[in-house]
Design a protein around this nucleic acid. Structure first.
Lengths: 226, 226
DNA sequence: CAAAACAAAACGATCGTTCGGTTTGTAGTT
DNA sequence: AACTACAAACCGAACGATCGTTTTGTTTTG
């Protein structure tokens, strides 16, 4: 790779970064090529030289996010391939928080795509993701249920509900700027969700006497925090 | 109200309806006043005569959605004021589905606001909504927990998680066009979610023998459906 | 006849894109 | 090491279209 290439790479990277920032924070239609050009230090002509069109820049950003999500080194993918749900629920939450934190703007980009392009840039990706998910967990759950580690619920639905909820929870908090902590800290909210998912909201008859009072007090205290 | 007013009302209503359709399906910045004018049968000048600016139209749409949500005749509000969670979980789901079904485009508008206006048109509304929610449920839950109808989880968090999840579930399905049924029908998916919320994903020790095999078969069958 | 409802042209700005031209880097030749 | 040729990187003006808004006027209504 010669120096000419390196110069080009640095420029396209800068252009993509500023385009990501602009698209995600004001939408695709409301962002102009001149804006991308001036804020990234390139000329408009050079932008077209490298990308060809405005929509191609958007597509490149979606693709970049895609590849980052498929990285097997990603904590979240390690949690998924391990298949230890629901024991490692807290680790799953941390991994999802990490993804949302790292890819805040790319996640907003998906909502931009849904609204301004009817989701055309991400639809096929999402469907393939759901399939991959289903395959990865289907086998490990047969074993888990056989060994009595799971209750009566469909475990595939359970892991989908859990991961989707966590994704939604952190997205609303970090990307939309509307915290959903219900008067608690983020960690407490996640803990409370994990408890609901594991034990349900109804009292568990067998454990009514077994659980110490300290736990009930803890729940009370959480409800009061502001 | 004279005939002049009636003519105006019909025009503004038509303008708002087409503006809603356009804003929600292609975003605010990508929708032009000429587009709204031609598709609603008004002239551009008349549009400005009635609304003053493009953003005022957007604001009016948000306000209209707001008022619809505050209607005490709304099924969802009846469920909320009744405060029978989690017994009426299925009714809550139906009421939320009704709201999402009826206000598909307004819900998309909220995402438009989040992206193109940083949520400035809806933020205060959302916060007041959360407060109202908290007040409405706080008292009824003290009683519910005292009578042993609820388990160890914070009931306020539980009802928030439930309603938010259902809202998210139906929004993704109806507004984004990406069903999250995990290979089941929408009703089955809701049932499964209700089961998770009530009983949790872990086996309930006291009920292991009490539950008939038919139930387990049902769960199995659901998992297989496609 | 005054006021409200409506229409259409016009305004300045900005849009995505194209195009002609310059600079920069590299490989090949002497 | 100097020179040449060429392609890629880069710039900024220009194009036609369209943007939100204003202006000027006409029609409708009480």
């Amino acid at each position: 790779m010669g120096r000419q290439q390196a110069r080009s790479d640095a420029s396209t990277a800068r252009a993509l970064d500023t385009a990501l920032k602009l698209f995600s924070h004001q939408g695709y239609g409301a962002t102009s090529m001149r804006e991308i050009a001036s804020q990234s230090g390139l000329s408009v002509g050079n932008l077209y030289h490298h990308f060809g069109s405005k929509e191609a820049i958007f597509q490149r950003l979606i693709d970049r996010y895609w590849e980052a999500l498929l990285d097997s080194e990603l904590d979240l993918n390690r949690v998924f391939t391990r298949g230890r749900f629901p024991e490692d629920l807290e680790e799953m939450a941390a991994a999802i928080e990490q993804v949302v934190e790292r890819h805040q703007e790319e996640i907003l980009l998906i909502y931009v795509d849904v609204i301004e392009f009817r989701g055309s840039h991400i639809r096929t990706f999402y469907e393939s993701m759901a399939d991959r998910f289903q395959e990865a967990y289907a086998s490990s759950f047969e074993e888990a249920r056989g060994s009595g580690r799971l209750g009566e619920v469909n475990p595939l639905v359970a892991v989908m509900v859990a991961s989707r909820w966590l994704f939604y929870f952190f997205t609303v908090e970090k990307c939309f700027g509307v915290p959903m902590h219900f008067g608690m800290s983020p960690n407490q909210a996640v803990d409370e969700f994990a408890r609901i998912l594991r034990f349900g909201v109804l009292p568990r008859p067998g454990e009514a006497e077994a659980s110490p009072d300290a736990r009930k007090d803890m729940v009370q205290e959480r409800g009061r925090t502001r």
